[in-house]
Write a protein that binds this DNA or RNA. Structure first.
Length: 304
DNA sequence: ATCGGGATTGCCT
DNA sequence: GGCAATCCCGATG
C-alpha cells in the first residue's frame, strides 16, 4: 500500500531559512493573552488587508495546489476526513513558509452535539466563527494558556478541530517557536513532537488568537494546499475514534468523530480499540505496528 | 462581581 | 500515568 510505503520523502524536506525575526516571542505571548475585544480583532483585520494589497505572496505552485472555498463547503464529518493528508501553510511576516500535513482532526457539530462550543445553536462572542461561512478559522483559548485552531464547515455552528500535523517545512522555526514556551535547557524536540497536539500546532505554526474569523480560502498568511507529493488518503487509511478530552458529555463523548491516519507517528493519541474496529473489514496490509518508524519522513508519503 | 469548568501540555514519579 | 499550571469564557445573581 503506497501510503504506508517506506520511501524517504525528499521534495518537501528542503527547509526554509530560519531567520530570527520569524520567532517573535513577544508577539506570541501578547496574542496568547489577548482579550476578545472587537477592537483588537479589527486591528488584526487591518493588518491583514494591508499585507494583501502589497504582496505577491503565492508562487505559481501555491496557486495550483491551494484549496478554494468550495472545498470547505461539505458536512463537518466529511470535511474532518477530507482534511487528512492536506497541507496547512503558514506564511510568516518575514516570508518564511511553514508547512505541515494534517494527520488528525475532530468534528464538532452544532445543535445536538453537546460537546461542541455551539451546542444547542448557542452563539457567543467566542464561538462566532463557527457560524460563519465554511472555511472560516475559529481560534479559541483553552485552559487559559493554550490555543486551538478549528475550521468551520457546512452546517449551522459546525467546525473541525485540527489536532496534529506532520511537519514538512520550516521545522527549525517550529522548534524555536515551541521551545520558547518550554523550560530553558530542555531537550530538543523531535520533529514528530513539534505539532502532535492541537495547541502544539498553533505554537509551531505561530497561529495567534487574532486569526479567529479569518478565511482559510483567501487569507494571505494561512491557507490549505493539496499535497502533490503523496497519494490521496483512502478511507481505509483513516481511523475513527471517540474525541479527546470531552468525557463529561455523556453519549456525545462516545461518537467516533476523531479521525487520524493509521500508523502515522505524529498522531497525538493512538486508540488501539478504535483501530481494531475501524480497520476490521479492510484488507490488512503487510505492515504491522513494528514497522512504524520514529522518522516522520517515512510515513504516508509517496515520492513523485 | 463572582464562580466553575475547560476540544491541553509538560514535567515529575 | 498522574497532576499542576493558568485564566478566559459564559452563566448566574
Amino acid at each position: 500500500m503506497m501510503l504506508r510505503g517506506k520511501r524517504k520523502m525528499l521534495a518537501l524536506t528542503t527547509l526554509a531559512a530560519a531567520p530570527e525575526q520569524a520567532v517573535n516571542k513577544h508577539e506570541n505571548r501578547t496574542d496568547l493573552t489577548l482579550k476578545v475585544s472587537p477592537a483588537k480583532l479589527k486591528k488584526c483585520e487591518n493588518a491583514q488587508s494591508a499585507e494583501t494589497e502589497q504582496s505577491n505572496y503565492l508562487t505559481k505552485s501555491d496557486l495550483q495546489h491551494k484549496l478554494a472555498e468550495d472545498f470547505f463547503n461539505q458536512s463537518c464529518i466529511s470535511l474532518a476526513k477530507a482534511f487528512l493528508g492536506k497541507v496547512l501553510v503558514r506564511r510568516c511576516a518575514d516570508g518564511t513558509e511553514l508547512r505541515g500535513r494534517i494527520v488528525e482532526t475532530e468534528a464538532y457539530l452544532g445543535g445536538e452535539d453537546k460537546a461542541s462550543h455551539s451546542a444547542g445553536g448557542k452563539r457567543t462572542e467566542r464561538n462566532t466563527a463557527m457560524f460563519m461561512k465554511p472555511g472560516t478559522i475559529y481560534v479559541y483559548t483553552i485552559y487559559g494558556i493554550y490555543l486551538c485552531m478549528n475550521v468551520s464547515s457546512e452546517g449551522e455552528g459546525a467546525a473541525v478541530l485540527l489536532r496534529s500535523l506532520e511537519p514538512l517545512q520550516g521545522q527549525p522555526v517550529m522548534r524555536q517557536l515551541r521551545a520558547a514556551r518550554r523550560k530553558e535547557g530542555a531537550r530538543q524536540l523531535k520533529d514528530k513532537e513539534l505539532c502532535n497536539g492541537p495547541s502544539k500546532l498553533c505554537q509551531a505554526l505561530n497561529i495567534p488568537r487574532c486569526f479567529d474569523r479569518r478565511d482559510l480560502a483567501s487569507d494571505p498568511e494561512v491557507w490549505l494546499e493539496k499535497d502533490p507529493h503523496t497519494n490521496p488518503v483512502e478511507p481505509h487509511d483513516i481511523v475513527s475514534a471517540p474525541r479527546i478530552g470531552i468525557e463529561s458529555h455523556g453519549e456525545w463523548a462516545k461518537k467516533p468523530w476523531r479521525f487520524y491516519l493509521h500508523g502515522h507517528p505524529c498522531v497525538s493519541v493512538v486508540n488501539k480499540e478504535a483501530e481494531r474496529q475501524s480497520l476490521s473489514g479492510n484488507v490488512m496490509n503487510n505492515l504491522g505496528p513494528s514497522d512504524v518508524q520514529s522518522d516522520t519522513g517515512q510515513h504516508n508519503v509517496k515520492r513523485t
